[in-house]
Computed example of a mutant assay.
Amino acid sequence: MTPAVDLDTIFAALADPTRRAILSMLLEDDMAVTDVAEPFEMSLAAISKHLTILANAGLISQDKRGRVKWCKLEPDALREASIWMQSFGQFEAVNLDAFERFLQSELDIAPTQD
């Protein structure tokens, strides 16, 4: 996590259900922005705003491959939040497989098919 990214930024990014759903989708593999947008009933511009918030929080990275912009999950970005939660002694380290199952159950999202 870059020094400019703090816990408030990470938790604010995670507070939105659309952004959590996007993270869940990216657990499987990198995705083109248009593929990320497909299951949502909102404009590509609105999805792009969500992706920008996730990128600013360090939760995803984006790069351009040819004419297509791709999104990639940055799972280490959750490490700082996990460490903070552990300091309360009530939480275990974030297990990304368990996190994915949690997101899928909370958002009622079917696992992505390749």
Rank of each mutant, 00 (worst) to 15 (best):
D63S: 14
L59E: 01
R79I: 09
F91Y: 14
F99D: 01
R79K: 10
R65A: 14
F102D: 11
W70G: 01
K64A: 11
Q86C: 12
M85P: 02
E80S: 11
G66V: 09
K72N: 12
R65D: 13
V94M: 13
P75Y: 02
W84Q: 12
G66T: 03
R101G: 02
G58A: 04
A93P: 02
L96F: 05
F91M: 06
F99G: 03
K64P: 00
F102R: 10
F99V: 03
V94I: 15
E74H: 11
G89K: 06
S87E: 12
E92P: 00
R101I: 08
A98R: 10
C71N: 14
I83K: 08
K72S: 15
K64F: 06
I60G: 07
L78S: 08
F91L: 06
A81K: 00
A81R: 02
F88A: 09
I60Y: 05
V94D: 01
R67Q: 13
E80F: 06
A81G: 00
P75M: 00
F88N: 10
R101W: 05
L73N: 08
C71I: 07
L78N: 05
Q62I: 04
E74K: 01
A93G: 12
W70D: 10
L59H: 01
F99T: 04
Q90R: 11
E74V: 15
R101T: 12
L73M: 07
A81F: 01
M85G: 08
G89C: 09
G58V: 07
C71P: 03
G66Y: 02
W84H: 14
I60N: 01
W70P: 07
D63I: 06
E100N: 13
I83W: 00
R101E: 07
E92T: 07
S87P: 00
A77E: 07
Q86I: 09
A77F: 06
K69Q: 12
F99N: 02
R101C: 04
L73V: 13
A77R: 07
E100I: 02
Q90T: 01
S82D: 01
L73H: 02
S82R: 02
Q62N: 08
I60E: 00
Q62M: 13
I83N: 05
D63V: 12
F102Y: 14
L96G: 04
L96K: 03
R79Y: 13
F99H: 03
S87N: 11
S82K: 01
D76R: 11
E80Y: 02
R65K: 15
K69A: 00
V94S: 03
I60M: 05
L96C: 03
L59D: 00
G89A: 03
G58W: 06
M85N: 06
F102C: 08
K69I: 14
D76N: 09
S61I: 11
D63K: 10
I83S: 02
D97I: 12
F102W: 13
I60H: 08
C71V: 14
